[in-house]
């Protein structure tokens, strides 16, 4: 839909391009920064620093050595990708108990996150943080991504990733502000109620296609304000509030003009 946006709003083309450029740079940066933390490039110091951070911030819940307790999962074998996802989205360290761990502003900077991930990854092999190239939306095929998203993700996350409800207060969040790296990590680690999509379900190339599709959704709708992309219910609310509201207002005005 890029070509489209450019054609439809000539005047905004520079702004759109600038935005895109920023987006891609941001995405690349976000992808690059933690990508140095893949298993190969971590150092023994990282693991040591991560171990200390873990003991101070995470061990109360996840246990010494991250082996888990009756309430919390063991982190042995969850891999660097799980830690990076959970910590960079602010879910971990968890604060409130609720239906699911909430997204918060991240509590650790990129370095600390990398160290935590390195420590957990050192316990047992698991999914690693994807490289920048693996999550680059410009390399993906958005059309193929759309098909994969529709069959695998839309039932929870809505057709364009606006989010949706699950049982008992759990929900699949909106995916519009999630970084490409986090999207990839979510697929390989399956946080909480979300299933894991391993390489047999969705290949790494297809994952990148999904990312391309999701990033494309951030451009808005050609039709005007997307009203939250929530579908017919929000459209109905607007029809009553704006449409019928304004028309009854006009009717009252016309009716009042007589007397």
């Amino acid at each position: 839909m890029k070509a489209l946006a450019a054609r439809r709003h000539h005047r905004f083309a520079p702004a759109v391009l600038l935005l895109l450029a920023l987006l891609v740079t941001g995405a690349l940066y976000a992808a690059l920064a933690p990508s140095q933390a893949t298993a190969e490039s971590t150092t023994a110091q990282d693991v040591q620093a991560g171990k200390a951070l873990f003991a101070a911030n995470c061990a109360t819940c996840h246990g010494v050595g991250a082996v888990g307790t009756s309430e919390t999962p063991s982190l042995v074998g969850v891999g660097a990708a799980a830690v990076d996802f959970q910590v960079s989205t602010g879910r971990m360290p968890m604060q409130m108990t609720g239906p699911q761990a909430e997204v918060k502003p991240a509590q650790f900077d990129a370095d600390q996150t990398r160290q935590l991930a390195a420590y957990v990854a050192s316990l047992a092999p698991g999914p690693s943080i994807p490289s920048a190239e693996a999550v680059d939306p410009t390399l993906g095929d958005a059309s193929n991504g759309a098909e994969i998203f529709r069959t695998n993700c839309a039932m929870c996350h809505n057709a364009v990733g606006a989010g949706g409800a699950l049982s008992e207060g759990k929900y699949a969040p909106s995916l519009w502000s999630t970084t490409p790296t986090q999207i990839y990590e979510a697929m390989v680690t399956g946080p909480q109620s979300m299933p894991v999509f391993n390489e047999n379900n969705i290949t790494p190339e297809e994952k990148r296609d999904v990312i391309a599709y999701l990033v494309e959704q951030r451009e808005g709708s050609a039709g005007g304000d997307p009203l939250g992309s929530l579908g017919p219910v929000s459209e109905g609310v607007w029809a009553w509030v704006i449409g019928i509201g304004a028309l009854i207002g006009a009717a009252v005005w016309i009716g009042a003009k007589s007397s």
Partner: peptide, 26 residues
Amino acid sequence: TMAINNVWNYGPYDPSPVSAGAQPDW
């Protein structure tokens, strides 16, 4: 000014997928 029923978001019909927020008009 207000987008309505952006069918390209929902995709072509295929009996298998159902997306969250699938509802009829009001």
